[in-house]
């Protein structure tokens, strides 16, 4: 665990987002905000990840894929709900093909980052307390 103290590698899965949360996550990798300098990075494989960032209200078509990715993240691990949709308080919660957020579809997230979409600086602060 000690080795992980300064490293927080995250895998992202979009489960029905409108693409605004994705753009804000991408902004964190731009040199303007550059979250990598704080030891937070996005990785390509869930096997390399310390946590999973989920966006969107969890559509039915993405539910199975999301479960598989989450299962592939080695423990200890963190589940992060990014944006109102994933947290469970977005506008599309009650849509028929939505499972109402990460908490309802998968399990209670370790971290909730609210906003529609959350400001990148706020995301950074939440990921790097």
């Amino acid at each position: 665990m000690d080795l992980q103290r300064k490293s927080f590698q995250l895998r992202h899965v979009d489960a029905g987002s409108c693409n605004a949360c994705e753009q804000e996550l991408t902004a964190l990798l731009s040199k303007e905000l550059d979250m990598q300098r704080y030891g937070i990075d996005m990785v390509a494989s869930p096997r390399h990840a310390d946590g999973l960032v989920v966006t969107g209200p969890v559509t039915d078509t993405m539910k199975t894929a999301l479960e598989k990715v989450w299962e592939s993240v080695p423990r200890p691990r963190k589940l992060i709900a990014l944006g109102d949709c994933a947290v469970g308080c977005g506008v599309f919660q009650a849509a028929y093909a939505s499972h109402g957020g990460v908490g309802a579809a998968l399990e209670t997230p370790d971290l909730e980052i609210r906003g529609c979409p959350p400001d990148p600086k706020k995301i950074l602060k939440k990921l790097n307390p």
């Binding site: 489960a15 029905g16 559509t59 599309f92 849509a95 028929y96 093909a97 939505s98």
Partner: peptide, 11 residues
């Protein structure tokens, strides 16, 4: 596509 189908029109 349509993995992200939420059901917007119905909503």
């Amino acid at each position: 596509l349509f993995q992200n189908h939420r059901g917007v029109e119905k909503t």
